[in-house]
Simulated assay, not measured.
Amino acid sequence: MLAICSDHAGVDLKEIIKAHLAERGIEAKDFGTYTKESVDYPDIAEKACGAVVSGECDKVILICGTGIGMSICANKIKGIRCCACSDTYSARLSRNHNDANALAIGARVLGDELAKDIVDSFLNAEFMGGKHLKRVEKINALENK
């Protein structure tokens, strides 16, 4: 299962992405927010990323105005490797090379169709392992310092 969340700036795009995921047969658990009333994105990111860390969900898509705030929050959570992406190439390589388990996108900087393409690139890509595994292990080791 995939986790998905947004702050107030990302509510509309989150609904578009959820519909897109449903069309692809991908189940997504929505961790909020559900209205355009202002919320603090760190609270939302913590809940959704917690579902990945606990194993309840495999990956998470986080949506805010730019994707930057959510990605910063997500990367503070042990076990999360989040990328803020505005293009499909970076989204694909975040999985191929970095084994990212979290994708942050910006509702105020992306069109709906590009956002869907970025999500697809992220979800369709697989971790390549090999030389990249050693690097991911070093990233993980940084969390324990």
Rank of each mutant, 00 (worst) to 15 (best):
Leu103Val: 06
Ser71His: 07
Ile77Phe: 13
Cys64Val: 01
Asp99Ala: 15
Leu110Thr: 11
Gly65Asp: 03
Lys78Gly: 07
Asp58Val: 11
Ala104Gln: 01
Gly55Phe: 14
Ser94Gly: 15
Lys116Trp: 14
Gly55Asp: 12
Ala48Cys: 14
Ser86Asn: 09
Ala115Glu: 02
Cys73Pro: 07
Ala74Glu: 01
Ile105Leu: 07
Ala115Arg: 01
Leu62Gln: 05
Ala107Lys: 00
Gly65Asn: 11
Ile72Thr: 13
Ser86Gln: 12
Asn75Ser: 07
Asn124Pro: 04
Gly106Val: 01
Gly106Phe: 00
Gly79Arg: 05
Arg81Asn: 07
Asp112Gly: 10
Val109Leu: 08
Leu103Ser: 03
Ile72His: 06
Asp112Asn: 14
Ile61Leu: 15
Ser94Leu: 04
Ser86Cys: 12
Ser90Lys: 06
Gly55Tyr: 12
Asp99Arg: 12
Gly65His: 08
Ala91Ser: 13
Gly55Ser: 13
Cys85Met: 02
Leu114Gln: 07
Gly106Leu: 01
Gly67His: 02
Leu93His: 08
Asp87Pro: 02
Leu110Asp: 03
Asp87Gln: 04
Thr88Trp: 00
Val60Ser: 01
Lys59Gln: 14
Ala104Arg: 01
Val53Thr: 14
Gly67Thr: 09
Asn96Leu: 14
Gly69Leu: 04
Gly55Val: 14
Gly69Asn: 09
Ala104Cys: 14
Cys64Asp: 12
Cys49Arg: 11
Asp117Phe: 08
Ala107Pro: 02
Asp99Glu: 09
Cys83Ser: 15
Leu110Gln: 08
Ile105Gly: 04
Arg81Glu: 05
Cys73Gly: 07
Ser71Val: 00
Glu126Asn: 14
Cys57Trp: 12
Cys64Leu: 05
Cys85Ile: 02
Ile63Arg: 00
Asp117Met: 13
Ala48Leu: 08
Val53His: 04
Val52Trp: 10
Val119Trp: 01
Lys76Ser: 04
Thr88Cys: 06
Gly111Tyr: 08
Ala100Glu: 05
Lys59Ser: 02
Gly106Cys: 08
Asn124Trp: 07
Asn124Gln: 11
Ala51Phe: 06
Ala107His: 00
Ala102Ile: 07
Leu103Gly: 02
Ser71Arg: 05
Asp58Lys: 15
Lys78Val: 15
Ala51His: 03
Ala107Tyr: 02
Cys82Gly: 07
Asn96Asp: 09
Gly55Glu: 04
Leu114Arg: 09
Asp120Thr: 08
Ile105Asp: 02
Asn101Glu: 14
Thr66Trp: 00
Gly67Asn: 05
Leu62Lys: 03
Tyr89His: 13
Asp112Thr: 15
Thr66Phe: 00
Ile118Pro: 00
Ala107Arg: 00
Ala107Asn: 14
Val53Gln: 06
Leu103Asn: 10
Asn75Trp: 10
Asn98Thr: 03
Ala51Val: 01
Ile61Tyr: 05
